[in-house]
């Protein structure tokens, strides 16, 4: 199919982009930001979106790239998924991001699609928002008024809706380094290799001696936004990863019990591929698998 007509603006700088977006908003124009376009173009082609204009940030020299900033890694919004995957800094310092990015779409889409675009698109079935939520990332946004920071817990507002205000663009995301003792896993469950996640689980778990010191778990596609599995996180704290009562049938797997609460507080959707009760079940099973994998 063929997109409906739109105007095209290619600002020369981020400042200009912010100004253009603010003006469009003031004029009541429906303007969309184009980065890699890998989510937007299919929507335009199916005529599910009719923007008056696209503001193409795809050629701006910044914000792009991955930077090690001591206690966190800063990922520029225009960094492509492919660049994220190739980054040694990402792999070594924030491996959960690498694990999840490797499951995003396919190689050709990852060459074009951007890290920031995936975040701002705020699709709860996307793989990266859950990572940002699990790691308590901080979103740095800019407008003509200046910069502000939005914690991940406030960034994903609703289905396909982020906290970006009028005239604001995403500069990038501060991804905290969690330091030694942490293990990571992203568990994605989908019907075919190129299908969206029915459910995904982003898990970061810190082992404290023989017990779980802290767990951070966020779920993909279990509601209109990514959600933290807070009850499970709390229940896991202080548990021994090994089954209680030794091996064998009599052993009680406390970690599994804790993960049985993974779906609490979620409101999973019903769609072609799964009904809510199945998604809840998957969230519990996959959280257990993700935690097990993250505790190695």
């Amino acid at each position: 199919m063929i997109p409906a007509a739109f105007d095209y603006i290619r600002p020369a700088s981020l400042e200009e982009a912010c100004r253009v977006l603010a003006e469009a908003d003031a004029a009541g124009d429906d303007v969309k930001v184009l980065a890699g376009g890998q989510s937007l173009l299919p929507l335009l082609r199916l005529r599910l979106a009719y923007p008056a204009a696209l503001v193409d940030l795809g050629r701006l020299p910044e914000p792009r790239g991955v930077e090690d900033r001591g206690d966190h890694v800063f990922v520029g919004a225009l960094t492509t998924h492919d660049e994220v995957l190739r980054s040694g800094v990402v792999r070594e310092q924030v491996p959960l991001l690498a694990l999840a990015t490797a499951t995003v779409a396919d190689p050709a889409v990852r060459h074009r699609g951007t890290f920031g675009g995936s975040m701002v698109h705020a699709d709860p079935a996307g793989d990266l928002p859950a990572v940002a939520l699990a790691l308590d990332c901080v979103f740095v946004v800019r407008s003509s008024e200046g910069e502000r920071e939005i914690p991940a817990s406030e960034f994903f507002v609703d289905y396909l809706e982020s906290a970006l205000g009028p005239g604001e663009v995403l500069l990038g995301v501060r991804v905290p380094k969690l330091g030694p003792g942490w293990g990571f896993h992203y568990e994605k469950f989908h019907r075919t290799a190129q299908a969206w996640a029915i459910v995904g689980v982003a898990a970061a778990v810190r082992r404290d001696g023989g017990t779980i010191g802290e767990a951070r778990i966020a779920l993909t596609n279990m509601g209109p936004t990514p959600v933290r599995a807070r009850a499970t996180e709390a229940a896991l704290r202080g548990l021994s990863p090994a089954p209680v009562g030794g091996a064998g049938d009599g052993a009680r797997d406390q970690v599994r019990d804790a993960c049985g609460q993974a779906d609490s507080g979620t409101s999973p959707p019903a769609d072609l591929h799964a009904k809510p009760d199945y998604r809840r079940h998957l969230a519990r099973v996959l959280t257990y698998r993700a935690v097990r994998a993250a505790t190695g």
Partner: peptide
């Protein structure tokens, strides 16, 4: 993926890229 081409040396799906891009 039938429309895949090399765009600046890397694979891209040419149905999901605007000519202006």
């Amino acid at each position: 993926g039938a429309c895949t081409v090399m765009l600046d040396g890397r694979s891209a799906k040419s149905c999901s890229v605007l000519a202006v891009q």
